[in-house]
Amino acid sequence: MSTRNRPLSLQSLRAFEAVARRLSFRLAGEELFLTQSAISRQIKGLEEELGAVVFQRDTRQVTLTAAGLTLQRAVQPLLERLDGAVRQIRSAGARPRVAITTFASFATLWLIPRLEAFQRRHPALDIRIAAHDTLHDMDDPDIDMALRYCHPDDAPPGALLLFGEVLAPVVSPWYLERARRGEIAALDQPVDLAGHTLLEVEGLYLGSSPYRSWEHWLAARGLQALQPRSWVHLNYDHQRVQAAQASQGVVLARLPLVADMLARGELVEPFGPAGRDAVPYGYWLILASGAVQRPEVQQLRDWVAEQAAPVRQALGEHAP
């Protein structure tokens, strides 16, 4: 077999991935506990096997060539998946664990406040939550369950709808009381928003974003020309909810995420049910194909579905 037809060595691919990520032979060597010259030899051997140069080197910097970029796009997820599988195998004899991926505001406002109840019921089960707005590949061996927000057409087969999306203005009860006493502008009807600070999403996401903007909510009520006293833009929903709790303005809240706060009186809807907008998106539970049969994953799935039922009831939704 010629050099260019045989499989690439894992060691050289790891050296390549480290250099490509750090753009430094020295830092890659420190990460892999190899000398810089050893890293250089690995890369040279890789380039000979590929028949292509993967790095452009000069005295001050290292950059990826076109071939290097192509290889990096293939190698990086491959190694991440391999390392995840190894971690899963090594932990097979340890305590059972369920790894969840979801977006930050869902974790902060809905999932984490409820987890203590699940842990009391299943004290021997460990939970790992990766909360960020990057969608994980459900084939990733590090992921067992995803809690996602999407349009029904984008939900994969087998996904469980937890509840739909409903948006409405909410404020703190102290803020509303001040408005009723005349200490700040009135807040009795949507047109009164002109006298208040509106808490808006910074960098609205594609897809569902138009529905979650104040612009859309106001236009639906014939108030597209309304301008508030001021705007405060925040990146995440949980930040906007926290600002509303601190009486810093009015937030167009995702009611499924604040249903408990509304029930406890920590937030209130100044316009009542008339201020609510149902939108064609929902919150879905998705299981990784390799995790479906594991009893601990089924336990968490059933518990999440159980927790979702009161939210659906609060929103006036029927069971899926």
Rank of each mutant, 00 (worst) to 15 (best):
L198T: 13
S209P: 01
G164N: 11
A131T: 10
A107I: 02
V166L: 06
Q76T: 13
A85H: 07
T65P: 02
L8S: 06
M145C: 12
G272M: 05
G158F: 03
A288S: 15
P169M: 04
F55C: 05
R178N: 04
G51H: 02
V170G: 00
Q189E: 14
H151C: 10
Q36C: 07
T59Q: 13
L198R: 08
L226P: 12
Q88L: 15
P156R: 03
V311H: 09
D144Y: 10
L218M: 06
R14S: 03
R254W: 12
R301M: 09
A67I: 04
V279K: 00
E17M: 12
L287R: 07
V170H: 00
V191G: 00
R148G: 06
A66F: 06
S24V: 05
V232T: 14
E49Q: 15
P280E: 11
R22F: 02
R121S: 12
R148D: 09
G158L: 00
L300Y: 12
E177T: 10
I112A: 11
S230Y: 01
S289G: 12
F106R: 00
H132A: 06
D139Y: 01
M145T: 03
F55A: 03
H238T: 08
A253H: 02
A107T: 00
Q293D: 15
D133I: 05
E30Q: 14
V241Y: 12
A38W: 09
G282F: 10
P156F: 07
W214E: 07
L111N: 05
P123T: 13
L82A: 12
G182T: 05
I286S: 01
V268S: 08
E200G: 00
D260M: 04
A104H: 07
E80I: 09
A15S: 15
Y149M: 10
G158P: 07
Y211G: 13
L160I: 15
A107E: 13
A52G: 04
R148V: 15
Q245N: 01
P156K: 05
D192C: 14
L287H: 03
W214M: 05
E202H: 11
G203D: 11
Q11G: 11
G51P: 11
A291T: 04
R312A: 13
A186L: 08
M145R: 01
A28T: 02
L69C: 10
A274D: 14
E31I: 01
R180E: 15
A124V: 07
Y211D: 05
A243E: 13
V191A: 15
A319K: 09
